[in-house]
Design a protein around this nucleic acid. Structure first.
Lengths: 148, 148
DNA sequence: TTGCATTGCGTACGTTTGTACGTATACCAT
DNA sequence: ATGGTATACGTACAAACGTACGCAATGCAA
């Protein structure tokens, strides 16, 4: 199995834009990205090309415009990226990162509620690990289910 | 103020080892790190040198051995590193990352309790944001600048 | 004392990353 | 038709990265 090449920080940024707006031209990605940070059109083009050559995007010409589409789901890339970070920074435990995020004061009051619910679901899924009974609440979270 | 150079993934790994075991020789860092992943002694040496040249570590000779010490606190580096990731991957919101971590099933049952407590503290600190009453639980979080 | 192992230190080298230029071409408004 | 504008595409290039070699000096065991 080939170890799919990891995305660089810059590539991640462009990938995110691509996930956000779906299949898009270079200009669309450029507009989206340049709103946040200073970047050249040609640079975006290069990133998209590299994204494609690494297998994270595909493209086709529509007339004279090239349309890029994401080929991987954000979840997968995010998972790998975060896992790598967690590995290097915390030896593989996710908890220290969670702790950091919560303690670092970036969670709004409103989000606390969601967080609490998330934890409730998590707890019940850990407690009730008898398969068969699917919960209706929101997203059914299967821990290791080979999807796609 | 100079924008301190960011650490690469490899450098982060070595920095972590240095934080873990405190002032240490190359070999100590090497032993610690090579237990987890394949790496050459000389590579560790190079990383430590680079860490020092970037200002994240200092060193002195003790006899014929060079002792490296971390010069920055892990919190600061972690904060910057994670902030950068969150920026690129989620446009700056921490919540999606927290959500990911929780939903990705890397939190043990035991950690759930801690998490809940963390949230409780967070909530009370948000609700009661009138200064003056210091909480005993660990650490006043300094709120960051209100980014957009 | 003679090696052998260990470490410091300088140096190297192929890749990847970040950033962009230049040119040919296709499109649009005049 | 003509010129300006946008885009594709090939190419570039310095810096950072990951990884390590080689030599000199020092310490240790036989």
């Amino acid at each position: 199995m080939k170890k799919s090449q990891a995305l660089s920080k810059g590539e991640l940024e462009i990938a995110r834009a691509l996930w956000d707006i779906g299949p898009a031209t270079v200009r669309q990605i450029y507009d989206q990205t340049s709103a946040t940070r200073d970047i050249d059109f040609a640079t975006v083009q290069t990133y998209l090309r590299r994204l494609e050559s690494k297998g994270y995007a595909s493209s086709k010409l529509a007339g004279r415009l090239r349309i890029y589409s994401a080929k991987t789901k954000p979840q997968a890339v995010i998972r790998d990226t975060v896992a790598d970070l967690v590995q290097r920074l915390f030896g593989g435990s996710a908890m220290p990162l969670v702790r950091h995020l919560i303690e670092d004061g970036d969670i709004s009051r409103h989000e606390i509620a969601e967080l609490r619910k998330l934890i409730d679901d998590l707890e019940s899924s850990k407690t009730d690990d008898v398969p068969g009974a699917a919960k209706v609440s929101g997203g059914a979270k299967s821990p290791k289910e080979p999807k796609s």
